[in-house]
Design a protein around this nucleic acid. Structure first.
Length: 558
RNA sequence: UGGGGUAUAGCCAAGUUGGUAAGGCAGCGGGUUUUGAUCCCGUUAUUCGUUGGUUCGAGUCCAGCUACCCCAGCCA
């Protein structure tokens, strides 16, 4: 609903439309290929929306493929969370999820094909020797002493490697390409290494694992991927991608296209840094509401639709970018503004006693669930002699710009009556304990009969039926726009990224759960119930605040 | 002269047979409003990294320059 309807256009979709028009493919096929070594984040959402979105819009298909060639870093828990998050985002992959590890047998056979063609060799050089011979960005590399080993020997040595006869690091299988290539990845890249590691999918079957560059292109070809979309840092790797496909016997020629990865201000989007935040417990976990992970955003209250809309708005190009948080916030506000029912909550309560109302009296008021959408219906709220209002909504004195409750002045209680502040009670420290007011009985649902204007409206909760609740307010996780550029990004963590408040919500929210959806707490922001919430102690996360023009006015110079 | 990429408003981004700068976010001004919200209206690049060239005409074509990003894991 809040999602814009027009289909996105970008250079990749243009290539696809051209290919389709030229009859190059009868059906477009893409894939989303995460390594299961962490949780998905908003940057992955960009890739997911691109790949699955293309499949949807061009009647094609998109595979979910776990690129699991490095068992040491991977875990089955990540394949589960990734599958869950992709579905939650609203996408469905073609058939069963795929795994690069499904192709280990075929990959191994292709490695042997390369050996047979004299295009791969087993190298017994040490890590240090390999590095030293690789050369530098400006100097060519030099050939390894093992580069000209004969085919039969290479066959035999690779078999021994595969059989576990060599230790990790003792040898590797390398493609024989060009040690003088200006593309570093073409200087006889290692395509298989020895790793005595248990694999979450293949168990202990293998002690050699193929490298990314060798695996990815072949996996794409085996799955019939037509357009293999990845991020910019793989542009050089495309030469190797094509080299492998060109030098093995395979009847599919997928094409790789690169787009720029997403950068979001005031957060980090690299797997390495997110893992560090979790491991060092700077956050409560992968789903901490301050995290840019899908799980974190979900717990924070972001909807799948708002994330899809965000991906649509940021577009897909090859330009390096740094997207403002405001862009993301605008997407969730647009969604929740139309979809979230309204309610009232007081986050920092101060008691108001309405002196001209009987203590025994309690009224029930029907309040709209949405001011601009009456089809959403109404809710019942109660009003009685004692109510809570927001501490910041009262001042003993204030100028005309302060459209709230001021001593001796009137204000409208949202959905209820006009009240007037008569006097206050303070504690020994001078803090306001209670505000004594009177109310105008003839102002429910109408303006004062004598025509006087009351411009301020504040929210409130009936003390008699209020439900206590904890509110968690979040701020940006980092204090600088680009924490990844810091020497140590951990030092840029915002110590005030979480603020906890204790107040009240209206009675109707008793029993709220994380499945209840979102509310707009009027004049405050959008909230959802956190999984930590319990019947005796409701916990609400602020997804995002309302646009706050008052803050600008109040803090404006002069 | 290692190579690969990218340069359009504060941010994101259209612009693709060269014809006289879309849209979104943010901002600003105004209107409606029992949310300082929403909504509505208006406004925001004489200019497309820069310097030259071709052309009646260039963001789009050509040449030079500059800036930024990526590549020297047996990571992906």
């Amino acid at each position: 609903m809040a999602e814009t309807e027009n289909r996105p256009t970008n250079f990749i979709r243009q290539i696809i439309e051209k290919d389709l028009a030229a009859g190059l493919h009868q059906q477009v096929k893409t894939r989303f290929p995460p390594e299961p070594n962490g949780y998905l984040h908003i940057g992955h959402a960009k890739s997911i929306c691109l790949n699955f979105g293309i499949a949807q819009d061009y009647q094609g298909a998109c595979n979910l493929r776990f690129d699991d060639t490095n068992p040491e870093k991977e875990d089955i828990s990540f394949v589960n969370s990734i599958s869950h998050d992709v579905r939650w985002l609203g996408f469905e992959w073609e058939g069963e999820p795929c795994y690069s590890s499904n192709y280990f047998d075929q990959l191994h056979a292709y490695a042997n094909e390369l050996i047979d063609k004299g295009l791969a060799y087993v190298d017994f050089s040490s890590h240090e020797e390999v590095r030293a011979l690789r050369g530098t960005l400006t100097e060519p590399g030099r050939n390894s002493a093992y580069r000209d080993t004969d085919v039969a020997t290479n066959r035999r040595e690779f078999a021994k490697m595969t059989a576990g006869e060599y230790a990790e690091g003792q040898c590797s299988l390398r493609a024989k390409i060009d040690m003088a290539s200006p593309f570093m990845c073409m200087r006889d890249p290692i395509i298989y290494r020895v790793k005595f590691a248990h694999h979450h999918q293949t168990g202990d079957k293998w002690c050699v694992y193929p490298m990314y560059d060798f695996t990815h292109c072949i996996s794409d070809a085996l799955e019939g991927i037509t357009h293999s979309l990845c991020t910019l840092e793989f542009q050089d790797n495309r030469r190797l991608y094509d080299w492998v496909i060109d030098n093995i016997t395979i009847d599919c020629t997928p094409r790789q296209y690169e787009f720029s990865r997403l950068n979001l201000e005031y957060t980090v989007l690299s797997k390495r840094r997110l893992i560090q935040l979790v491991d060092e417990q700077h956050v409560s976990g992968w789903d901490d509401p301050r995290m840019p992970t899908i799980a974190g955003l979900r717990r924070r209250g972001y909807t799948a639709g708002s994330i899809r809309e965000f991906c649509k708005r940021i577009g897909v190009t090859k330009m390096d970018n740094m997207v403002e948080m405001g862009m993301l916030e605008s997407c969730i506000r647009d969604d929740l503004n139309v979809n979230a029912p309204r309610a009232m909550a007081v986050l920092e309560p101060v008691k108001v006693i309405i002196e001209n109302m009987a203590a025994s009296e309690s009224q029930t008021i029907d309040a709209p669930l949405h001011p601009n959408d009456e089809t959403m219906g109404t809710r019942s709220i109660t009003f009685s002699r004692e109510v809570y209002i927001e501490a910041e909504d009262f001042r003993e004195e204030a100028n005309k710009k302060f459209k709230r409750l001021v001593l001796g002045k009137e204000v409208r209680l949202r959905n209820a009556y006009v009240i007037k502040a008569e006097r206050v009670d303070k504690d020994s420290d001078g803090n306001i304990k209670t505000i004594y007011c009177t109310y105008d009985v003839d102002t429910l649902g109408k303006d004062p009969a004598d025509g006087r204007k009351v411009k301020g409206v504040i929210h409130w909760v009936d003390a008699a039926t209020a439900v206590p609740a904890q509110f968690r307010l979040y701020d940006r996780l980092f204090t600088v726009p680009n924490p990844a550029a810091q020497d140590d990004f951990v030092e840029a963590i915002n110590p005030e990224s979480l603020t906890v408040k204790h107040g009240y919500v209206e009675a109707g929210l008793r029993g709220a759960t994380p499945e209840s959806g979102a509310w707009q707490f009027e004049r405050t922001g959008y909230f959802c119930c956190d999984p930590d919430s319990q019947a005796e102690q409701l916990v609400f996360n602020q997804t995002v605040g309302l646009r706050d023009t008052w803050a600008k006015i109040e803090h404006a110079p002069g």
